[in-house]
Structures are given as C-alpha cells and as structure tokens.
Design a protein around this nucleic acid. Structure first.
Lengths: 246, 246
DNA sequence: CGATCCGTTGAATTACGTCAATAGACGTGG
DNA sequence: CCACGTCTATTGACGTAATTCAACGGATCG
C-alpha cells in the first residue's frame, strides 16, 4: 500500500474538509484530540492499489480528497466494481486485517489514516467514533443493497442514468438549477462498465444515446453537463419521492 | 407489521439458539440481563410483511427461526431481492425509523425483538451490543458487495450455483460428506429469480440443467440434494481458496 | 511521425427474456 | 372417489437486449 505514497502537511482537524462527515463527525473536542494524536496524512497518485483482496491492510483510512474504487476480479478476468470511495468514505475494516476487495485510487487520493490496532483501541474507548462508524456502515449497507437493484433489474440505459444521478448526488454535483449541473466523471468508461455490470461498448452506446436524447452533454470524455436532471432521474427509475439511487 | 402475529413463550437467553451468533453474542451476563428485560418474542406466519419500504418500523428484531427476504419493487413491477434474513440476522435500523426495503416472511418466522427507542438507548450504554452490531453490519456489507459481483458479472448458471452454494454455507447445509448434503430451499422459484436478477423461467432451466449434469438432485420442489458440492462451487466461480460467495 | 491509449461505432452472435402451453401438487366440493 | 380450480414449476418456440468481434478516430507522447 505504501511504495508510491507521499506525506502531506498535517493540518488541524478544525479545518479539515471532512470534519463533519467522516468517521470523526460526532467527536467532541476531547475525542478529536485523541484521534488527532494518532492520525497521519498520506497521498497516492492515481492508479495506486490502496488494498488488495486477501492482503493485509495496515491502516484504517478516511478519504480526504480524490476517488478510489473497490472491486473484485474473477479468475477469468471479469471484474465488478462494488463501491466508489469518495471524500469522507472510509477504507479498512476494524476487527479484520485482510481486505475483502481490491481498492485502487482512480484519481490522486489523499487520506487521513490511523494504524489499525490504535484505531481499534480508540473504537473501544471513544463512543462517538464507534457510533459514527456504525451509522456510516449502515448507510453503506443500504447503498450496497440499493445498488443490487440496479445491477439485478435495470436495463443498460437505466444503469448508466442511475450511475450519473448517483454521482451528482454524492459529489454535490455543482448544481446550477435551470442551467444543468456540471459533472466530472472520476472513472474511465471501462471502470464505469465494471461498476454497472456492462461492457465498455454498451456503456459507451448508452452515454451516446443519452446525449442524442438531449439529457446530457459531453464537454469532454470526463466532463458531462447534465442538461435535464429530472429527466435523467426518471430514466434511472427514480420518480423523485422515495426511490433512493445509492 | 403486527396483525397476524402471535406471542411465543419467553425463554431464557441461555437456552436461546442464537445466543452466540446474534446481536447479543458478545454480551456479558449483566448486559444480557438488560437486554432480556426489554425483549419479547413474536411469531409471524409465512407471507407476513415484516416491514415495508418507507414505512415506520417500531422494533429492532433478531430472527430466531425461519426465513425472511428483503426486496425492493420498482413501479413497473420489477422486483429485486437484496438479502435473505436467516436465524441470528437482524431486521431494523438503529437511528432510523423507516425501513429502506420490504421485508417478507417467506416461511413462518419467530423473532426476538426490542422496542426501537429502548434498543437505541441500550446501544449507547452496553458497549458489547454496539460492537457486535458493528461487526454484524460490516459482515453484511461485505456479503452485499460479494453479491454485487454475482448480480453484475455472473451467468445464469453461475448465479444459480452461487445461490445454492451460499445457502448450503449459511444453513450449515446438513453436510454429509461423500453422500452429498441435503438442502431445503426457503424460497419459491420466483423468489429465487428475484434474488438472482433472473426470470422464473431461466432459473428453472438452470436448475434443470444442473440436475441433468448430475450436480444436484431434486427430491421435491423445495428439497435438493447436492450431489457434488465441489463441482457446484466451481460452477459458482468459487475455486475453494478465497472467493467468498456471500 | 508512428505508437499507444481510450472511446466510439458497426455488424454478427448469443444468452436471456417473453409468450404460451403443459404438467404436477394440492385442496375443495359434489 | 373423481372432477375441477388454483398455484407453482417445467418446457418449448421465438424475440431482443446486450455481448462479442472488429474497425476506426482522436488524443497524447516519445
């Protein structure tokens, strides 16, 4: 996990961009000080493997910036992305040393991390870290189950629409009401396909189709303008009221 | 959630079949007493809706016996099962009153349950309940992500094989080495199809194919003898070493 | 300039879905 | 006991959405 990493300057938690959304969100000043005492920052360039399925994971990390993907690859090469780690999401499993999945930085990633044993001790002592971790894990579980609906029952077009909608929602999609929101795709077409259980080709075709239908606009391969978010959400089977799209 | 329910006699936790695997698994005697003070048993006949997506859930429940399925149904009727609740699994989300999914008893179900507010208070006070709940939730999350690989990347045959393998693993599949293990299917073909993101017809065809290939034997619609578990696991893309199949 | 990487597009193939008929299991009532 | 209806599962014929195979185009880089 470490070879290409670089240290970043330690900053105060009070200025931390994920202070109120990460695993530390519920901490009182005292607890925060204890977390702070064992934290360290680290950065990894895009492409770095942050964890590998079955290998030991030495740290529990919170994503500060950038994006990482969790995936599993079958022996014959088929790959499925099972999650996207964005700022404030965590990586690592307390109570278990081995990672269940591959985790790869898909853009440059900076994390705030804790040595595993130290973090687990902290988990026992600082109730607000434990409760926040439980809440985040429950949220992740709901999201994973929501995504199962997409993988199991949606058409290619719906899958792509659902993916874009979920990205806008999670990235806070720079919503500029009326004019459509600007969306940066952190993933390549191949990675999107692996996320959706599709091939590169069908993914590309569906993106093209959404463009031709006027729902989105391609500024570049990685930059998309959502022309009609409401219509896109409808395509994703999200009628606005309840249907949570990850 | 309640109309058709019946009470069951309260038994001591020390004789409880899920005492060492449910949310109470790590409790010391003192904590167990506190849990016991607010617990109650309840039974529901097969077919009962234990929760509905978007509706309030008044209790946190542990499955004592029987089987329930969690699912979401899209407006047009497409349905996806997102999880199977077996003994020791829990139902309900601390910190949130609304269920994210439909939960239906697929067989007669008995639960040990706690009123939500009381359970949440207990979660704050008894660290071993909180830590066990976190561990179980992390396990569920891994399982949900494993299942995403099945839904997104496996063929119909592999899906059916993976489902059977996972059932054997979770039900402790009455393994009779050499002679094959006996497996009771808690789900109808339709429910299996909804679990696998397939239609009833393809599910049925794949079961037939596995039978004709000598991997399984159909004693009745709901009773299967796994003739060659190793071969079945191979079909499920499980090479024995690491590949976790839910 | 050629080489490589990534994405798009077209044509052919196929795995799975859809539609439809049939069969077995079970219960009810004459 | 048999006739009948219902419910679930199986099987067949056919249609189609997505994959596969293949060619091509536009970046980026030595």
């Amino acid at each position: 996990m470490c070879r290409m990493s670089r240290f970043s300057p330690i900053v105060s938690c009070s200025e931390c961009p994920i202070r109120h959304s990460a695993v530390c969100a519920e901490c009182d000043p005292d607890e925060l000080a204890r977390l702070s005492a064992i934290k360290s920052y680290r950065s990894f360039p895009a492409g770095t493997m942050l964890a590998e399925a079955g290998e030991r994971l030495t740290h529990f990390s919170s994503i500060l910036s950038g994006c990482a993907s969790m995936s599993r690859t079958l022996e014959d090469g088929r790959r499925q992305n099972v999650g996207l780690l964005l700022p404030s999401d965590y990586l690592g499993r307390p109570g278990r040393a081995e990672s269940a999945f591959d985790v790869e930085a898909v853009s440059d990633v900076t994390v705030c991390r804790f040595e595993r044993a130290a973090f687990e001790a902290l988990l026992r002592d600082t109730p607000h870290v434990a409760s926040r971790l439980l809440t985040m894990t429950l949220d992740e579980l709901d999201a994973a189950r929501d995504w199962a609906v997409v993988l199991g029952r949606m058409t290619a077009r719906e899958k792509v629409a659902a993916f874009l909608v979920s990205l806008v929602r999670r990235q806070g999609g720079v919503a500029r009401p009326g004019r459509g929101s600007l969306l940066h795709l952190p993933l390549s077409r191949e990675a999107i396909a692996d996320h959706l259980g599709l091939t590169i080709e069908t993914t590309s075709r569906q993106i093209t189709a959404l463009r031709k239908d006027g729902l989105i606009e391609l500024l570049s391969n990685r930059e998309i303008r959502i022309a009609d978010f409401g219509a896109l959400a409808m395509e994703a089977g999200d009628d606005g009221d309840g249907g949570p799209i990850v």
